[in-house]
Nucleic acid binder design. Structure first.
Length: 822
RNA sequence: GCCGGUGUGAUGGAAUUGGUAGACAUACCGGACUUAAAAUCCGGAGAGGGAAACCUCGUGCCAGUUCGAGUCUGGCCACCGGCACCA
C-alpha cells in the first residue's frame, strides 16, 4: 500500500471500478424495499456551483446509506434545460441556445461524474429534447380536452424598444435591463391552467406529507383559502353594479370608500372623460407587474367622481382608484374600512377620507386608537352598526351575509389567494405549445402529430421571438380542413418541465407512453432534496401536476414527494455567491487541488443541510487533513500486521481501556446511523466519526483482544465514512483485504451489550447552578443518588445554612437541589 | 409591504424531548521534530476576577413562564429566502 493519500490517483480508479461493475444501475426487485431519492435537477448554466455540490452530495450520501441498508435505490439525474439564460447567452455569443445548452450539459455531466455521485446514468434526461417534451405536449392537450386549460388576458412587462416581453427580473427600477426603456404593462392572450380547481386538495393534502412545517405553512398561506362574502353595490347613475369581495363583512357599516384597481372597467370609464385620471392610470401602467414592487410602491389613488350606494344605509360612497388594489385577486375592487384594515387606514389618512369605528374591543385595549392605526382584531363587537350592533365577529359575519343574501346581492364564498397558472411565454427556448390557429379557431395538435419540434438552428438577437419569423415552423395545415393554419409561437413556462420529471425518471424507458407501470413502483419519491427557494412555486406546481396525472390514470398516488429536505444556501463572506459580487468559489478548482472526497466532506461537515453554509477555504484544508489522518490510520494499522476481520469481540475479556474504545465504537455506529438515516445531520455524524478516530489513534493495542477491538473500529470508521467520502473508503476497504465494494457491505449494527455502563456521571445543581458531579452506579435508586449529591463536598458547601425546599432528579442526567436560607 | 426562516466563542457549528452551553473542526498561541521552513504530532484557550481552589457573567435586544430557558411565550432589532415571467 502506498504511503501517502493521493486522491488524484485513487478517485479516477475507483470511478472506473464502479463503472465497470455497474454499481449504480437501478435494481427493481419487488421483494425488496424501494427508496427513490431525488435531488432537484440543475439548470445547465455552464458549470456546477457550490449549491449543486452541496445538494447532490446530500442526496448521494443518503442514497449510498440506504443501499447499504438493503434498499433498492433509485437515484437519477437530468437537466432542466429550457430557460432564459440560454437565450441571453445566445445573444451574447451568437451561439444558438441548443448548442450552448448541450455543451453545458456535457461539461456538467463530467463534473458530476468526477464528484463520484452514484447516479443511474441510463435514466438521464434533458427537458429540451423532443423525446421528453412530447409527453408534456401530449399532457397539455389532455388538459385542454378536460377544460383544465383555457385562454385569458394577462398583463406582461413590455419593452417598447426591444419589442419584447420581459421577465420580472429583467425589469430594473421600472426599465428594461437591456434597452433601459421605461417598461409598460400590456395585456395579451395567454394560456392558463386551472390550478385553482385543485386548491382545496392542494391545501388539505399538505397534512399527508412529511415536509418541514415552514414549507407547508408557506404553501398554505400562498393558497390562502378564506371565507368571505361576495356582494355587489348599486352604482349611482348606472345600471351596472360593482362587485367586491371581503373577509370582513362584520365591518360593512364602516365603509367610507371603495377602491378599484387601475385596470378595472370603472377606472377605464372614468379616464375617458378625465385627463388627470387618464394620466394616473397611464402612470400605473408603467409599474412592474411584480407583486413585491406593487406592495412596496407608495400608496396612491384618485377619486373617480363616481359613487356606489351603501346596501344598508343608502349613503353615497365614493369610488377611488388605488394602485394597491390587485386586478387579479377577487373582482379587482375592495370595500374600504379604514377603521379596521391597515392598508385602508393608510390610504384614508393620506387622502383625508373619513375613518369610522364599527368594531370595539371587549376590554380596554391600549392598542385601540384609530387616530394612530387601524384596529384589525376579530375579537371585538360591532358598534355604530345599526341593526347589526353588539355582535361578536362570527355572529356579525353571519348576520351581514344573510342580510345581503336576502336582498339578493351577495353570498358567502370561499376565496383563494392562489391564481390560475399562466403557462404561456413569449420566448423561443422552451417547449412549443401544441396548438394551431386555424380559420375555425384554436385547435390542439393531434397525438399522431406530436411532438411539435422546436427548431434548434435559430438566431437569437433579443428582440421578438425567433419562432415567429420562422415560416417553416409557423406555416402549417389544419388537418381537419386541409387549409393553411399557423402554429402557436408561445412556449411553455419552464416550470412545466420540472413539474413531472420526477415521474419520468421512474419510467425512463417508456417509448410509447408518458409513464408506464414502473412509475407506480417507484412513486412517490421517498425523499426530495433541493433549495428552500423552491418552497412554493416549483413544489406547488409539481404537486398539482401529480394530481392531474392521477386523475388521468397515469399514477395512483396523491402526492409526488413523501418527504422533503430543503437545503440552505452556500454563502461566502456572509452573502450569496454570485458573479456580480465576485465571491464565487469554483468547485472544479477544489476538486483539482484536493479531490472530490475532500469537497464532499467539507460541504457535509460545515453545516447541517437546512442552514446556510458559510464557505471557508481553511475548512476545506481541514477536511483534507482529516482524510490524510484516516489514510494514515489505516496504513499504520496494517503495518502492525495484526489486523483481523470479522472477529467477534468478547466483551468479558477486555481491559477497561479497550472496553471504553469498544463502547465508543458502538455509540458512534448508533449516532451516525441516526444522524444520516433519520436526522440528515451529516455534520454531527462526521464529528462523531472524528471523535472515534481520535480515540482509536490514542488506543495503544497490545493483546489479541485489543487488536480485535482495534480492527473492528478501523473497519467501522471506513464503512461509516463511505457514504460521505466514497473513493478513499472504497480504496482503504480493499487495502484491508476485502474483495467486494462497500456498496455491497451491509451497514454496521449496534451491539447493545457494548453500550452498557456500570457507572454514570450525574451533574449536581444547587438552585439551577452547576456545583459538582457525582459518579453513581447505573442502578442506583433515587435516595442513594440524593444522599451522594448532598455529600459531594463542592455541593455541601452551598447547602450550609440552607433549607432544602425541593429536590429534582432527572434520570441519567442531573440532580437539582432547590434551597433557601434557613 | 406581505408570507416563511435565521441569530450561540475570533470563525463554521454542537447541545435531538425544557436539564452540564461551546462537542467536533478552523484560525490563533505554546511545545516537540527540523540547520530552517512546510508537513506532522502533543498541549492551551468564552469573557472578567483570583496565586490557586474556585467565583461571577455569558446563546441578537427587552420582558415573562419554570426548580431549571440557547430551547417555550410576548414585544423589538438585524440579516436571509419567496412574492406568481430567474430557476
Amino acid at each position: 500500500m502506498e504511503r501517502d493519500y493521493q486522491p488524484q490517483v485513487i478517485e479516477p480508479e475507483i470511478q472506473k471500478y464502479w463503472d465497470s461493475e455497474q454499481t449504480f444501475k437501478t435494481i427493481e426487485n419487488p421483494d425488496q424495499p424501494k427508496f427513490y431519492c431525488l435531488c432537484m435537477f440543475p439548470y445547465p448554466s455552464g458549470k456546477l456551483h457550490m449549491g449543486h455540490v452541496r445538494n447532490y452530495t446530500i442526496g448521494d450520501v443518503i442514497s449510498r446509506f440506504m443501499t447499504m441498508k438493503g434498499y433498492n435505490v433509485l437515484q437519477p439525474m437530468g437537466w432542466d434545460a429550457f430557460g432564459m439564460p440560454a437565450e441571453n447567452a445566445a445573444i451574447k455569443n451568437q451561439q444558438p441556445p441548443a448548442a450552448w445548452t448541450y455543451d453545458n450539459i456535457d461539461h456538467m455531466r463530467g463534473q458530476l461524474k468526477r464528484l463520484g455521485f452514484g447516479y443511474d446514468w441510463d435514466r438521464e434526461l434533458a427537458t429540451c429534447t423532443p423525446d421528453y417534451y412530447r409527453w408534456e405536449q401530449w399532457l397539455f392537450t389532455r388538459m385542454v380536452d378536460k377544460g383544465l386549460a383555457y385562454r385569458k388576458k394577462a398583463r406582461v412587462n413590455w419593452d417598447p424598444v426591444d419589442q419584447t416581453v420581459l421577465a420580472n427580473e429583467q425589469v430594473i427600477d421600472g426599465r428594461g435591463w437591456r434597452s433601459g426603456a421605461l417598461v409598460e404593462q400590456r395585456e395579451i392572450d395567454q394560456w392558463f391552467i386551472r390550478i385553482t380547481d385543485y386548491a382545496d386538495e392542494l391545501l388539505d393534502d399538505l397534512d399527508a406529507v412529511d415536509w418541514p412545517e415552514q414549507v407547508k405553512t408557506m404553501q398554505k398561506n400562498w393558497i390562502g383559502r378564506s371565507q368571505g362574502v361576495e356582494f355587489s353595490f348599486e352604482r349611482k347613475g348606472s345600471e351596472e353594479r360593482l362587485e367586491v369581495y371581503t373577509t370582513r363583512p362584520d365591518t360593512i357599516m364602516g365603509i367610507t370608500y371603495v377602491a378599484v384597481a387601475a385596470q378595472h372597467p370603472i377606472a377605464t370609464q372614468a379616464a375617458a372623460s378625465n385627463l388627470e385620471i387618464q394620466a394616473f392610470i397611464e402612470e400605473c401602467a408603467h409599474m412592474s407587474v411584480a407583486e413585491a414592487d406593487l406592495a412596496q410602491a407608495p400608496k396612491r389613488g384618485m377619486a373617480t367622481g363616481q359613487f356606489v350606494i351603501h346596501p344598508f344605509t343608502g349613503e353615497e360612497i365614493p369610488i377611488w382608484i388605488g394602485n394597491f388594489v390587485l386586478m387579479e385577486y377577487g373582482s379587482g375592487a375592495v370595500m374600504a374600512v379604514p377603521g379596521h384594515d391597515q392598508r385602508d387606514w393608510e390610504f384614508a389618512t393620506q387622502y383625508g377620507l373619513p375613518i369610522k369605528p364599527v368594531i370595539q374591543p371587549l376590554d380596554d385595549d391600549p392598542e385601540y386608537d384609530l387616530s394612530e392605526k387601524a384596529w384589525c382584531e376579530k375579537t371585538g363587537v360591532t358598534v355604530h352598526s345599526g341593526r347589526f350592533d353588539g355582535l361578536p365577529f362570527a355572529d356579525a359575519f353571519k348576520a351581514v351575509a344573510e342580510a345581503l343574501e336576502e336582498m339578493g346581492i351577495g353570498r358567502v364564498t370561499t376565496n383563494y389567494r392562489l391564481r390560475d397558472w399562466g403557462v404561456g411565454r413569449q420566448r423561443y427556448w422552451g417547449c412549443p405549445i401544441p396548438v394551431i390557429h386555424t380559420d375555425e379557431g384554436l385547435k390542439t395538435v393531434r397525438d399522431e402529430d406530436l411532438p411539435v419540434t422546436l427548431p434548434e438552428d435559430v438566431v437569437v438577437d433579443g428582440s421578438g421571438s425567433p419562432l415567429a419569423t420562422r415560416s417553416d415552423f409557423v406555416e402549417t395545415v389544419d388537418p381537419d380542413t386541409g387549409r393553411p393554419a399557423k402554429r402557436e409561437t408561445d412556449t411553455f413556462d419552464t416550470f412545466m418541465e420540472s413539474s413531472w420529471y420526477y415521474a419520468r425518471f421512474a419510467s425512463a424507458f417508456s417509448d410509447d407512453a408518458m409513464l408506464d407501470a414502473h412509475a407506480n413502483h417507484w412513486l412517490p419519491v421517498d425523499l426530495y432534496i433541493g433549495g428552500i427557494e423552491h418552497a412554493i412555486l416549483h413544489l406547488l406546481y409539481a404537486r398539482f401536476f401529480h394530481k392531474v396525472l392521477r386523475d388521468l390514470g397515469l399514477v395512483n398516488s396523491d402526492e409526488p414527494f413523501k418527504k422533503l429536505l430543503t437545503q440552505g444556501m452556500v454563502l461566502k463572506d456572509g452573502s450569496k455567491m454570485s458573479k456580480s459580487k465576485g465571491n464565487t468559489v469554483d468547485p472544479q478548482a477544489l476538486i483539482d487541488q484536493y479531490g472530490a472526497d475532500t469537497v464532499r466532506l467539507f460541504t457535509m461537515f460545515a453545516a447541517p443541510p437546512e442552514l446556510s453554509l458559510e464557505w471557508s477555504d481553511d475548512g476545506v484544508a481541514g477536511a483534507h487533513r482529516f482524510l490524510k489522518r484516516i489514510h494514515a490510520l489505516v496504513t499504520e494499522h496494517l503495518d502492525q500486521g495484526r489486523h483481523v476481520s470479522n472477529e467477534l469481540v468478547d466483551l468479558e475479556g477486555l481491559s477497561d481501556e479497550a472496553r471504553d474504545v469498544y463502547r465508543k465504537l458502538h455509540e458512534t455506529i448508533a449516532k451516525v446511523s441516526d444522524d444520516i438515516g433519520r436526522r440528515y445531520h451529516f455534520n454531527t455524524a462526521i464529528a462523531s466519526i472524528m471523535e472515534l478516530t481520535n480515540s482509536v489513534m490514542k488506543f495503544d493495542a497490545t493483546g489479541d483482544a485489543d487488536w480485535a477491538v482495534r480492527s473492528e473500529a478501523v473497519e467501522a470508521i471506513v464503512i461509516l465514512l463511505s457514504p460521505i467520502t466514497p473513493h478513499i473508503t472504497e480504496h482503504l476497504w480493499s487495502s484491508l483485504g476485502h474483495q467486494n465494494s462497500l456498496m455491497d457491505v451491509p451497514w454496521p449494527k449496534v451491539r447493545e451489550d457494548a453500550l452498557t455502563r456500570h457507572t454514570l456521571t450525574l451533574v449536581v445543581q444547587v438552585n439551577g447552578k452547576l456545583r459538582g458531579r457525582i459518579e453513581v452506579p447505573s442502578d442506583a435508586d433515587q435516595t442513594t443518588i440524593l444522599t451522594m449529591a448532598r455529600d459531594e463536598p463542592q455541593v455541601a458547601k452551598f447547602l450550609e445554612g440552607m433549607v432544602e425546599k425541593k429536590a429534582i432528579v432527572v434520570p441519567q442526567k442531573l440532580v437539582n437541589l432547590v434551597v433557601a436560607p434557613a
